[in-house]
Every structure is written in C-alpha cells, then in structure tokens.
Amino acid sequence: MYAGGRVLLHSRRGTDMTASFPEIRAAALTQLPADTGIDGELVVWERDRLAFERLQQRLARRGAAAAQAAQEWPAHFVTLDVGPV
C-alpha cells in the first residue's frame, strides 16, 4: 500500500483504485511508516449498513468528483494483514 512515499490501492485483479479514494491515500501517508504493505478491504457505510453499491460508484470517480464522493460516502479500510513491502 505505501512504499517510498507512494500510496497504491489496487484490487485483487490489479486495478489501480488510488485516485478514487483520496481519503484512504491521505490517511496512509500520515499514519503509516514507509514501505508498509497492508491487505484488507475497502467498505462504505450508509445508514448503519455496508453499501457495496456506493463503493462501486466511488470507483468511477477521480479528481474533484472523488473528493466530493469522499465527503458524501467516506470509505474505510478494514485491515486483514500488515507487513513490510
């Protein structure tokens, strides 16, 4: 996820999702030491439930649209494994 000052969020299939989730990127930069790898899941909550459709909608947004979506439907990262890159 975070190596050499660069954050990369990617799907199981290798799709780069970093631009769609600026709040996750910012959190990684401020809270993780360099060269940290994290395996986990992105989730979005809406009205006390997981909202997979909101997560899918977020994937298509970049730039200002991604920042706006982060305000409306913030994503959270559920960590399953942590280790060095």
Score class of each variant (00 low, 15 high):
residue 31 Q to D: 07
residue 34 A to L: 05
residue 55 L to C: 03
residue 40 G to S: 09
residue 60 A to G: 11
residue 26 A to W: 07
residue 51 A to P: 10
residue 43 V to N: 06
residue 10 H to G: 00
residue 48 D to N: 15
residue 77 F to A: 02
residue 80 L to N: 08
residue 56 Q to Y: 02
residue 40 G to W: 03
residue 82 V to Q: 13
residue 53 E to D: 15
residue 56 Q to T: 12
residue 78 V to A: 08
residue 83 G to Q: 09
residue 79 T to G: 04
residue 55 L to R: 08
residue 18 T to W: 04
residue 3 A to F: 08
residue 33 P to A: 11
residue 82 V to M: 12
residue 16 D to C: 01
residue 56 Q to R: 14
residue 48 D to Y: 11
residue 8 L to N: 03
residue 43 V to H: 07
residue 17 M to P: 00
residue 32 L to I: 09
residue 55 L to E: 03
residue 5 G to S: 08
residue 3 A to I: 14
residue 3 A to M: 11
residue 72 E to I: 13
residue 64 A to M: 05
residue 7 V to E: 03
residue 60 A to K: 13
residue 54 R to Y: 01
residue 11 S to H: 09
residue 56 Q to P: 00
residue 21 F to G: 01
residue 5 G to R: 13
residue 48 D to P: 01
residue 15 T to Q: 12
residue 76 H to Q: 12
residue 64 A to R: 14
residue 31 Q to W: 06
residue 35 D to Q: 14
residue 48 D to Q: 14
residue 61 R to A: 09
residue 8 L to H: 02
residue 84 P to R: 15
residue 6 R to L: 05
residue 53 E to K: 13
residue 24 I to M: 09
residue 48 D to C: 04
residue 52 F to V: 13
residue 80 L to D: 09
residue 85 V to E: 04
residue 52 F to E: 10
residue 29 L to G: 13
residue 16 D to K: 04
residue 11 S to Q: 05
residue 65 A to I: 10
residue 1 M to C: 05
residue 26 A to I: 09
residue 70 A to K: 10
residue 12 R to W: 00
residue 26 A to T: 14
residue 71 Q to K: 15
residue 79 T to F: 01
residue 17 M to E: 04
residue 9 L to N: 07
residue 43 V to S: 06
residue 34 A to V: 08
residue 4 G to A: 12
residue 32 L to T: 15
residue 14 G to A: 01
residue 15 T to E: 13
residue 15 T to D: 14
residue 82 V to K: 12
residue 69 A to G: 11
residue 10 H to M: 07
residue 54 R to I: 00
residue 44 V to D: 01
residue 68 Q to K: 13
residue 67 A to C: 02
residue 12 R to P: 03
residue 47 R to V: 04
residue 33 P to G: 12
residue 54 R to Q: 12
residue 45 W to K: 04
residue 62 R to P: 01
residue 27 A to Y: 06
residue 74 P to W: 03
residue 50 L to F: 07
residue 34 A to K: 09
residue 66 A to V: 09
residue 83 G to K: 11
residue 67 A to W: 04
residue 71 Q to E: 14
residue 27 A to Q: 11
residue 62 R to K: 15
residue 51 A to Y: 06
residue 58 R to Q: 02
residue 29 L to T: 11
residue 16 D to S: 04
residue 25 R to D: 11
residue 13 R to H: 09
residue 3 A to R: 15
residue 24 I to A: 02
residue 79 T to P: 08
residue 28 A to L: 03
residue 35 D to P: 06
residue 78 V to Y: 06
residue 16 D to N: 13
residue 83 G to W: 08
residue 69 A to F: 08
residue 55 L to F: 10
residue 25 R to N: 07
residue 60 A to Y: 09
residue 58 R to Y: 03
residue 16 D to E: 02
residue 75 A to W: 02
residue 45 W to S: 04
residue 58 R to S: 07
residue 51 A to C: 10
residue 84 P to K: 13
residue 7 V to S: 06
